[in-house]
Computed example of a mutant assay.
Amino acid sequence: MSKALCRTVVVRNSQGLHARPADLLVRMANQFQSTILIGRGGEQVDCKSILSLLTLGAADGTELSVSAEGDDAERAIDSIEQFFLRGFEEPSKSDSETSA
């Protein structure tokens, strides 16, 4: 049995949690078996649903709570936290010259 892990993340993107990062977040969440919820102010939504994520209306600077429960909960919550810390990996002006 696993217990739920919780973490607070902050939206670090001038456009907030809009469609592109919400799609990436759903894709990331779906790589994990754990149940992942995200929300604010007592409202929790399924992190694997893009429509649910968009209903949060999370603007730049918004604090969100993330919880994950399951066998891979720690990996899931770590990945999501890093995604928020990187500002949703939105391209900056210098990124176009970076190669893999």
Rank of each mutant, 00 (worst) to 15 (best):
L56R: 09
Q33A: 15
C47L: 10
L17P: 04
G57Q: 11
T62I: 04
C6Q: 12
R7N: 05
Q44L: 09
K48F: 15
D23H: 00
G39F: 08
Q82D: 03
L54D: 05
A59G: 15
S14E: 07
V10A: 14
E81Q: 11
L85N: 07
S65D: 03
R40F: 00
Q15A: 15
A22R: 00
T35W: 01
A68I: 12
M28L: 14
E43L: 06
R86Y: 02
Q82F: 08
S65M: 14
Q31Y: 04
S79I: 08
G39D: 07
V11P: 14
E81A: 14
I36G: 03
I77Q: 13
C47V: 09
M1L: 10
A22G: 01
C47K: 10
D60A: 08
L64Q: 12
G70Y: 06
S67P: 00
S49R: 03
R20G: 07
R20I: 04
M28R: 08
R40A: 12
C6T: 14
C6N: 00
G16D: 06
R12Y: 01
S14D: 07
R86T: 12
V11I: 06
S67C: 09
I50N: 05
S52W: 10
Q82L: 11
G42P: 03
E69A: 15
S2G: 05
A68C: 13
V26R: 01
L85I: 11
R12V: 05
A22Q: 07
S34F: 04
S92C: 03
S2M: 06
E74M: 08
F88N: 05
A4T: 11
Q15W: 06
L37R: 07
K3D: 13
L37S: 14
L25T: 00
A59M: 06
A29Q: 06
Q44G: 07
I80G: 09
L51P: 04
D71N: 09
G39K: 02
P21F: 00
G87N: 01
G41D: 15
Q31L: 11
L24D: 02
G70L: 10
T62Y: 06
S67Y: 01
D78R: 14
T35G: 08
A76N: 06
A22E: 00
E89W: 02
D71L: 08
V10E: 03
S79F: 05
S34Y: 09
A76D: 01
A68F: 12
L51N: 14
Q31P: 01
R27C: 11
A68P: 06
Q31K: 13
M28V: 08
Q15C: 00
A76C: 10
S14M: 05
G41A: 08
K3S: 12
A76P: 04
L25R: 02
T35P: 03
R40E: 12
A22C: 03
G42F: 07
K48V: 09
E69T: 13
G57V: 00
A59F: 03
S92K: 11
N13K: 07
V9K: 08
F83K: 02
V10R: 13
R40I: 13
N30H: 09
G70A: 02
E43D: 03
T8H: 15
E43F: 13
S2L: 09
V45H: 04
V11M: 05
L85A: 12
A59I: 00
